Computed example of a mutant assay.
Amino acid sequence: MDNNEIKNLLINALSPQEVYVTCNGNHVQVIIVCEQFIGISNVKKQQVVYAPLMKYIVNSRIHSLSIKALTPKEWQFYYKLNTL
């Protein structure tokens, strides 16, 4: 799978405010910002992101998946922290 394919899947499924995808073969890193994450645990955020990608994980098109799932407020803090 490529970056755009995964990004489009997540956009269609979750309507995030921001989504960044990096693929290295079947190893995928996702940073996703979504209002849907407000008030839910980190584990639940991970589950929400895994759901639309599960069939690709099961058939090994995605072997490993690293997720940073953030609310818009968390994103502002994360973005500022990582751009200083």
Rank of each mutant, 00 (worst) to 15 (best):
M1S: 07
D2F: 10
D2P: 05
N4M: 10
E5N: 05
E5P: 05
I6D: 04
I6N: 03
I6R: 04
K7V: 04
N8A: 07
N8V: 11
N8E: 14
N8S: 08
I11Y: 07
N12E: 14
S15N: 01
P16R: 01
E18H: 04
Y20D: 03
V21H: 06
C23F: 01
C23T: 14
G25L: 01
N26Y: 12
H27W: 02
H27N: 05
V30E: 07
V33P: 04
C34K: 15
Q36N: 07
I38Y: 14
I38L: 11
G39R: 10
I40C: 14
N42M: 09
N42P: 07
N42S: 06
V43F: 13
K44F: 03
K44P: 03
Q46E: 09
Q47F: 09
Q47E: 15
V48S: 10
V49P: 02
A51D: 05
L53W: 12
M54T: 05
M54N: 08
Y56A: 03
V58D: 06
N59H: 13
S60Y: 15
R61I: 15
S64W: 09
S64M: 10
L65M: 15
S66P: 10
I67P: 12
T71F: 15
P72N: 15
P72L: 15
K73W: 10
W75Q: 05
Q76N: 08
F77R: 02
Y79R: 01
K80C: 01
N82D: 03
N82V: 00
